[in-house]
Amino acid sequence: MAEFWTNFAWPTVTITAQILVIVVPLLVAVAFLTLAERKVIAAIQMRKGPNVVGPFGLLQPFADGLKLLVKETIVPSGANAAVFVAAPMLTFALSLIAWAVIPFDAGLVLADINVGILYLFAISSLGVYGIIMAGWASNSKYAFLGALRSAAQMVSYEVSMGFVIITVLLCVGSLNLSDIVRAQETVWFAIPLFPMFIIFFVSTLAETNRSPFDLAEGESEIVAGYFVEYSSMAFALFFLGEYANMILMSAMTSILFLGGWLPPIAVAPFTWIPGPIWFVAKISLCLFVFLWVRATVPRYRYDQLMRLGWKVFLPFSLLWVVLTAGVLVATGWAPR
């Protein structure tokens, strides 16, 4: 019995507790990100944004959540019910499980696996299934168009994202996310690999279906795209999944290019601030750029989006992979 307790029961309890410690703040962050988005966009458009519910509108996300919770869930009569219900669950679950490998500080990570970056890449490439299943199961033309657009878009941008990740991996020599952060102790990769940093960030915008690449939603042409038939909590799961994915992609950008939990320079006033706070600050910076872009840039035309992905980003990132590999080998900087 004691063996059962030490070998199975106690690990289960601790792992569950660790998962909760990650997921609960994440969900709170998602809730407040929706508020932050409305506030930031309002500020850019010289409005006030939500300011009625609670002080400074701080309780607005909870009011929105409550509203969605008490609404009626509608499954269209022509819909494929099983897939229709599974799609939002899949989207939301995928946006959460990726956090298992994110390192918040040196050694502060739930699962420190050797292939962490590949795991993140794999999970983020699965996000398209929630969308494509929702679009198909809704049995609606607008939803289907949105799903097709998003499938083509996400597959296109994944390729250049893969090359960007390869460039970083060439400089690190490991697929482990903690090693990637540790390799940036001298200089953040955003500086030597600056063009890749830009390409990666733009690709994350496309990967999360955020504006200016939000053609999957495209409210002015295909009403709301893939989730037009969804209501109530099913819609809320898509909504939360999208914002959780934004946070995840920002975390990925900070780990790959902005030095994760590391301070900008390792001298006294910066090193006093603990690692997780630096990490969260970097994520917040990336998220702010997400919102800034949304408020500033008009939506791309679909063929332009494909052109940017295949004809600009792909050749450029491929060239940069060759260049980086060449420089690393020629100068002997390549990690052993």
Binding site: N114, V115, L118, Y119, F121, A122, S125, L126, Y129, M154
Partner: peptide
């Protein structure tokens, strides 16, 4: 590594 490549290549690209 094979597991992740299986997910990235087959699930993430081919099956889409």
């Amino acid at each position: 590594f094979l597991a992740m490549i299986l997910v990235v290549v087959y699930v993430g690209a081919v099956a889409v």
